[in-house]
Nucleic acid binder design. Structure first.
Length: 260
DNA sequence: ATGGCATGTCATACATGA
């Protein structure tokens, strides 16, 4: 079972690229972030046209997440995280596909920091940590994937430049510490387990020729519960899609799990 | 230290992104 996370940076502008990806790679599950469209604008018919069922949680202009499943309808379990009834951002949706629980998340960017946006990011991470603990307690095979907006380590393996990102919310000590606390609950960082050393990026900025000079960083992650990690076969980044016309600034990132 | 670019909208400028 191939499970992808893909921040599309606007489902409207990216639909041809997404449909092309689904047809070429045919992942079993495809988690989307940054739809930048409300529920009515989600292109469910076009996605169904290439053979995918979907659940989605949209929002006008910003945010928005969806889970697509090949040849079947994902069974939605929840949308949004508990812990803040005033939070209106569409950043989390969760469904089961077959015997696997899939959580699709778009973690707040947090820039500029310090400031209210960074505070919101850290608070959102606390809510995610609480929810993730509950998922582990079920002992189900679970995959928590998405755009975490966290560079996990101060290493060239995770960013083109530690120095350039030093003041960025994505790489602050508080952001990395919260991500580590999540991991230490018992989650496996699938991409890094499969590729223990060497640069591995999932995002390249549109600006300043970042793609051309490979100035990227790793912020899209698959966290696997123990039952899912036992079934991990491979993980990778479909980097070629970042180089195509009208590409998102994120590349699709994937894991393959053995069938139960 | 700055700027570079892309997307979407209450569009011909601004907010947001990372």
């Amino acid at each position: 079972m191939k499970i992808v996370t893909y921040n599309v940076n606007g489902i409207g502008a990216r639909l041809p690229r997404l449909l092309e990806y689904l047809e070429e790679q045919a992942p079993d599950v495809c988690c989307l972030q940054e739809l930048k469209a409300d529920d009515e604008k989600f292109p469910a018919a076009a996605i169904e046209g290439v053979g995918y069922g979907a659940v989605w949680h949209g929002q006008k202009s910003w945010n928005g997440v969806a889970i697509l499943a090949k040849g079947r309808q994902p069974e939605e379990r929840r949308r949004g995280l508990a812990g803040d009834p005033d939070d209106t951002h569409s950043r989390y949706i969760e469904a089961t596909v077959g015997d696997v629980l899939v959580g699709c998340l778009y973690l707040p960017n947090g820039n500029p920091q310090p400031g209210p946006k960074f505070d919101y990011k850290l608070a959102w991470m606390e809510r995610l940590i609480v929810h993730a603990a509950g998922l582990l307690a079920t002992e189900l095979p679970a995959v928590l994937c998405g755009d975490y907006n966290v560079i996990p380590t101060l290493s060239h393996d995770d960013t083109f430049s530690v120095r350039a990102m030093a003041q960025d919310a994505l790489m602050q000590p508080e952001s990395r510490a919260a991500f580590r606390r999540l991991l230490f609950q018992g989650w496996t960082d699938a991409l890094r387990v499969r590729h223990p050393a060497g640069p591995l990026y999932t995002f390249w900025d549109y600006q300043a020729g970042a793609w051309q000079r490979d100035a990227g960083f790793r912020i899209d992650h698959h966290l696997l519960s123990p039952a899912a990690a036992d079934r991990l076969i491979d993980a990778g980044v479909d980097k070629v899609y970042r180089g195509r016309e009208k590409a998102s600034d994120h590349a699709p990132t994937w894991v393959v799990l053995r069938d139960a």
